[in-house]
Design a protein around this nucleic acid. Structure first.
Ligand SMILES: NC(=O)c1ccc[n+]([C@@H]2O[C@H](COP(=O)([O-])OP(=O)(O)OC[C@H]3O[C@@H](n4cnc5c(N)ncnc54)[C@H](O)[C@@H]3O)[C@@H](O)[C@H]2O)c1
Ligand SMILES: NC(=O)c1ccc[n+]([C@@H]2O[C@H](COP(=O)([O-])OP(=O)(O)OC[C@H]3O[C@@H](n4cnc5c(N)ncnc54)[C@H](O)[C@@H]3O)[C@@H](O)[C@H]2O)c1
Lengths: 289, 289
DNA sequence: ACGCCCTTGTGAACGTTTGCACAAAGTCGC
DNA sequence: GCGACTTTGTGCAAACGTTCACAAGGGCGT
């Protein structure tokens, strides 16, 4: 697995297995919307309505659902309850998934306390940490166990999904142990590229990356706003690209005036070494997801 | 914005703006790896090495970097420090980004306490909550303010990025107020599809969706393992698709024996109404990201 | 000064995803 | 029972993303 390109069935015509990744990623959204509708007493929904609620194009929604089978009724729409069942089944949510959380720090605790965790069949099997001061404490009804017990916990609770919420420096090691213990699905919160065998499926959640993507677009927006302050063909990027770090650090945020005001450029951070205790890296694993 | 399809420049030949979204999403990973290398004293890196460390194909890495300009040296590779600077600049990280966090619960607190937050120029401007019991308390050196002050805080701190860490039921409302106050970049942790004007950029982080995607692949894996227990052309999905909920609830996990043992199917959850206090939905916004 | 060798940058092929548009299929009113 | 109307399911083309493979370019040894 490891959601890289590599393995994926070419999806032969009579496609019953081989649901596109893009579709799989949207099914949980549809499911959440469907649950909401069921709660409000809606019994039937058209692709148009469902698509609007999920924020997608209705054709895309129909194509997505068509991968699961023909569960709609032409002229009417989809039966909400029935569709909930079908989507749940396809996603494997009709069974329970014991989840092991490694790292009971800020994030691990938040996850353990999170109610929505259990709502789709994910059950916290155990919570591990290596800090003797934390081991033994109780978090959300779970007594934190020692990180030495990874293998034991995986076996004992038949853990299928491991969550890594340790500092980046420990993540690869924890990952290796989870994999060695038989875990094949890992959700990684540490900002590291994990190195895993190809049959292991890793997904990452990286807050910092999300913020950086937002920053990119935000910058793009304000850059567009000052579009007319610059020479028409002007290319400020290549202008300073004559190699050797830019003459003036301030070159990065030229002609100040912009919507949000060009704040003091934090050059030292951008130019040289690390920024946090967290930086770290090794190995290879698909980066896109 | 709202990273949906809609707006994106066709990227005319002389492409200097219009970096593909897929590339933008990977730049932060490259950046992190580069920082790590800089810390270890590496001064030069080839696309092959950098790609391996980031877990991507080297051709993809080169193409990604080529969108920023020609910053490599043939026969040699890339200068680490220089590349760090260029990627940072492209992402808009050479300026500071004041971030406003709304919702100081489990997650909001974890975010506020998170050190790596500040490492790329993201600075927590303020932390808001609506619970009188929480307002006034101090979290990570920030005194929690009242959620009534959204507009004021946005103005006062020149907030560009808003983080929503409230329960799902409050998210759309908070979002509306952030947008009205001028925030154009939002990171949403609540499991809701936010409805925003097209010039607002929303990214979501949804733990539950990630787990569900993992569960899908995990199920697929174990299904493959029992491949030979079923009739060759057998299609258990359509078998019960003759409408009307499946005769026997257990139909979802037929012939038990599978790698991980078919656990008690949580039918009640899968079939009918909601599962958590969180389910909720409205509006439209791109679902893929 | 020259040529070898290494690595970048990119053209072109391929696979995946999206969205349009419409025929097929079913419902509902009469 | 039938015809009009609604909505699904899908063929197709365009957009987007990934990967291969190699020519162009630059450093370095001689
Ligand atoms: N807190 C956030 O908002 C946030 C946001 C994004 C990413 N992250 C990432 O998530 C991870 C956890 O963040 P956090 O804020 O909870 O950090 P934290 O320092 O609060 O907690 C980390 C916990 O892991 C434990 N630990 C360390 N090594 C371990 C090991 N080998 N085995 C088991 N446990 C071990 C520590 O004892 C500590 O309790 C970090 O990698 C961080 O970069 C956190
Ligand atoms: N904790 C997790 O691990 C986790 C994981 C995934 C998703 N989420 C989602 O993140 C969100 C926050 O999760 P949490 O665990 O921190 O919840 P929480 O209940 O611990 O905290 C929510 C906080 O938001 C505050 N709040 C409520 N309405 C508000 C409003 N209108 N304005 C400002 N503040 C308001 C509450 O007072 C509370 O302090 C939820 O939507 C949850 O579904 C949480």
């Amino acid at each position: 697995m490891s959601r890289g390109p590599s393995a994926r069935r070419p999806a032969p015509a009579g496609n019953h297995h081989g649901i596109p990744d893009a579709t799989v990623a949207r099914l949980p959204v549809y499911l959440r919307v469907l649950y909401g509708m069921a709660d409000r007493g809606v019994t039937t929904v058209s692709s148009e309505e469902l698509a609007a609620a999920a924020g997608v194009n209705s054709a895309k929604l129909r194509k997505d659902l068509s991968h699961l089978g023909s569960y709609g009724t032409r002229g009417v729409g989809y039966d909400v309850e029935y569709l909930v069942y079908q989507v749940s089944r396809e996603l494997g949510l009709t069974q329970d998934w014991p989840v092991l959380i490694v790292g009971a720090g800020n994030l691990g605790r938040a996850l353990a306390n999170y109610g929505g965790f259990a709502s789709r069949g994910f059950r916290i099997a155990a919570l591990l940490d290596c800090d003797p001061g934390v081991v033994g404490t109780v978090i959300a009804r779970h007594t934190v166990r020692s990180a030495d017990e990874i293998e034991e916990a995986v076996r004992k609770f038949d853990v299928a999904i491991g969550v890594i919420a340790t500092p980046a420096a420990a993540a690869q090691n924890v990952c290796n142990r989870l994999v060695a213990a038989g875990v094949r699905s890992i959700l990684n919160f540490a900002p590291v590229v994990l190195n895993v065998p190809s049959d292991v499926d890793v997904r990452k959640v990286d807050l910092s990356i999300e913020l950086q993507i937002l920053a990119f677009h935000a910058q793009r927006r304000t850059a567009a706003a000052r579009l007319f302050d610059l020479p028409p063909g002007g290319d400020l990027a290549r202008g300073i690209a004559a190699r050797g770090l830019p003459a003036s650090p301030a070159a990065a945020s030229p002609n100040g005036r912009s919507g949000r005001g060009a704040r003091a450029a934090a050059e030292s951070r951008a130019v040289a070494g690390s920024g946090s205790e967290d930086d770290y890296t090794t190995g290879a694993q698909a980066v896109g997801t």
